Amino acid sequence: MHGEQAPVEVRTRVAILEAALDPTHGQFTGQPVWIGPTARRFAEDLSARLRQAAQGLIDALEEELRAVPAKGSPSAGRH
């Protein structure tokens, strides 16, 4: 993965992860398996935590990439 492609690749993989959870989330929330306010809060909290974790991953990767000097930049060879 090249520096500029890495965030795109991570976003793609995060989208795949989120999509993979959709059918399970749909079953969980679409059928009377576990219903009521506690179940709704659990589902909302789970979704929020997953989105937050995924965004944290993307943010951390982008921060790391910003810290790496670009190839060929004047400061790339200096220490």
Rank of each mutant, 00 (worst) to 15 (best):
residue 1 M to K: 08
residue 1 M to Q: 07
residue 3 G to F: 04
residue 4 E to G: 12
residue 4 E to F: 05
residue 4 E to N: 11
residue 6 A to R: 09
residue 8 V to H: 05
residue 9 E to P: 02
residue 9 E to L: 15
residue 10 V to H: 02
residue 13 R to M: 14
residue 14 V to H: 01
residue 15 A to W: 09
residue 16 I to N: 13
residue 16 I to A: 15
residue 17 L to H: 11
residue 18 E to P: 01
residue 20 A to D: 08
residue 20 A to M: 09
residue 20 A to T: 08
residue 21 L to V: 06
residue 22 D to K: 09
residue 23 P to I: 00
residue 23 P to K: 03
residue 23 P to S: 03
residue 23 P to D: 01
residue 24 T to G: 13
residue 24 T to K: 01
residue 25 H to T: 11
residue 25 H to S: 10
residue 25 H to V: 07
residue 26 G to M: 10
residue 28 F to N: 03
residue 30 G to V: 14
residue 31 Q to P: 10
residue 31 Q to H: 15
residue 33 V to I: 15
residue 34 W to M: 12
residue 34 W to H: 09
residue 34 W to K: 09
residue 35 I to Y: 13
residue 36 G to C: 04
residue 37 P to M: 06
residue 37 P to R: 06
residue 38 T to D: 04
residue 38 T to I: 13
residue 40 R to M: 05
residue 40 R to Q: 10
residue 40 R to I: 11
residue 41 R to T: 15
residue 42 F to G: 04
residue 42 F to R: 00
residue 44 E to K: 07
residue 45 D to Y: 01
residue 46 L to T: 10
residue 46 L to K: 00
residue 47 S to F: 09
residue 47 S to H: 10
residue 48 A to T: 12
residue 48 A to Y: 09
residue 48 A to S: 12
residue 50 L to Q: 07
residue 50 L to I: 14
residue 51 R to A: 11
residue 51 R to E: 06
residue 52 Q to L: 11
residue 52 Q to P: 00
residue 53 A to E: 12
residue 53 A to N: 12
residue 53 A to P: 00
residue 54 A to Y: 03
residue 55 Q to I: 02
residue 55 Q to F: 00
residue 56 G to V: 00
residue 56 G to C: 05
residue 56 G to R: 04
residue 58 I to L: 02
residue 59 D to P: 05
residue 60 A to M: 08
residue 61 L to M: 13
residue 61 L to D: 11
residue 62 E to N: 10
residue 62 E to S: 10
residue 64 E to P: 01
residue 68 V to Y: 03
residue 69 P to A: 06
residue 71 K to P: 14
residue 72 G to N: 01
residue 72 G to V: 02
residue 72 G to M: 03
residue 72 G to H: 02
residue 73 S to V: 10
residue 76 A to P: 02
residue 76 A to M: 02
residue 77 G to N: 09
residue 79 H to P: 04
residue 79 H to C: 12
